[in-house]
């Protein structure tokens, strides 16, 4: 049964923290929204409530890392990626602090709560901070693997995940039946094809994978790549997969400006220019609706991804 990524994170960080007393979790009155209630109850000495103060929370985490602890900061991505962006830049990344900033309920997860609660700028912001690793996991299975990897990974990391339960893509119960090892910085090739390369990240990967299947049924051969790590970017895989296809489609839950599509387009334009269709959210305040409604409104769906891929291939003749 699928669970939200934030729940998979909370379960795994609790499991890891039971075996490593240096793992501490900080939150900003966000233990409920991060689903950290069990962690706080079971490991109160490793749980630090900071109150509604993201700047202080990230700064404190850098100080705790200096003391030899392994802090995870967890709360809404919209606040951590903007309100405390300077602490992430200076105290964490510039200072090379071993801090993991876990942004939950990211993108348009908060739907009708409005632009204040959306984080559609975080890929743009965080991938331009030197020294910061940026990860968007696709589903609960991958989130669990990523969380385990992060407890042993030394260095500054920003993670964004969503709020609602998403269909399981990976693992024995997942739709793809694929269970690839999670390695920071190594993209996952879900499908290999020769007509169109589809790059996706975060919770849009599931839609991209279904688009690949639809295209296959229509006789179009698609590569589908999960770019879970956006910094450092797996340039080798992107260039190799794109080189094997005629056109490229990117899919992400982010502003069309400065997101994963921009990173891919920029890389390809320097090495091997391809026609690209970026499927993302417009740089405007988003229509009111639940997360799935917003995705449908802006075409972050398997049907639209497949349709855009076909249109692109038609344009190329």
């Amino acid at each position: 049964m699928s669970i939200p990524c934030r729940q998979a994170f909370s379960q795994e960080v609790l499991a890891q923290a039971k075996n490593d007393k240096n793992v501490v979790v900080l939150c900003t009155d966000s233990r409920g929204s991060v689903m950290l209630g069990d962690f706080a109850a079971e490991l109160p000495e490793q749980f630090i409530e900071v109150g509604i103060a993201e700047q202080n929370c990230v700064g404190m985490a850098a100080g705790l890392a200096n003391a030899g602890l392994k802090p995870f900061v967890a709360g809404p991505a919209c606040f951590y990626s903007m309100r405390s962006a300077e602490q992430v830049k200076v105290d964490v990344a510039y200072s090379n602090s071993n801090v993991k900033v876990i942004g939950i309920s990211g993108g348009v997860s908060y739907g009708a709560l409005g632009t204040s609660h959306h984080s559609l700028q975080d890929i743009a912001t965080m991938t331009a901070v030197p020294g910061l690793t940026v990860i968007l996991p696709a589903d609960a299975w991958q989130t669990k693997q990523m969380t385990a990897a992060l407890t042993v990974h030394e260095g500054p990391v920003y993670v964004r995940m969503g709020r609602g339960a998403v269909p399981d893509l990976y693992g024995p119960e997942g739709e793809s039946k694929l269970a690839p090892d999670f390695k920071i910085g190594e993209a996952i090739e879900l499908m290999q094809g020769s007509d169109v390369a589809i790059f996706a990240c975060g919770e849009t990967v599931w839609h991209a994978w279904h688009a690949g299947k639809k295209l296959a049924a229509a006789g179009i051969s698609a590569s589908v790549v999960d770019l879970h790590t956006l910094m450092p970017l797996d340039e080798e895989t992107i260039l190799r997969v794109a080189a094997g296809c005629k056109a490229v489609v990117t899919v992400e839950e982010h502003s069309v400006n400065g997101g994963m599509g921009s990173l891919v387009a920029s890389l390809l334009s320097e090495h091997n220019p391809k026609m690209i269709k970026k499927i993302a959210l417009p740089n405007e305040n988003i229509v009111t609706g639940s997360s799935p409604e917003v995705f449908r409104h802006y075409g972050i769906t398997a049907d639209n991804i497949a349709e855009q891929a076909e249109l692109l291939l038609k344009k190329l003749g």
Partner: peptide
């Protein structure tokens, strides 16, 4: 030097983390 600084208002939160870290790790 323990941590990069220069953006004002960052030092006290970081120092709070260091001091809390001492208590947490028994130093």
């Amino acid at each position: 030097i323990e941590i990069c600084s220069g953006a004002l208002g960052h030092g006290l939160p970081a120092a709070v983390g260091m001091a809390l870290g001492a208590k947490k790790s028994g130093r």
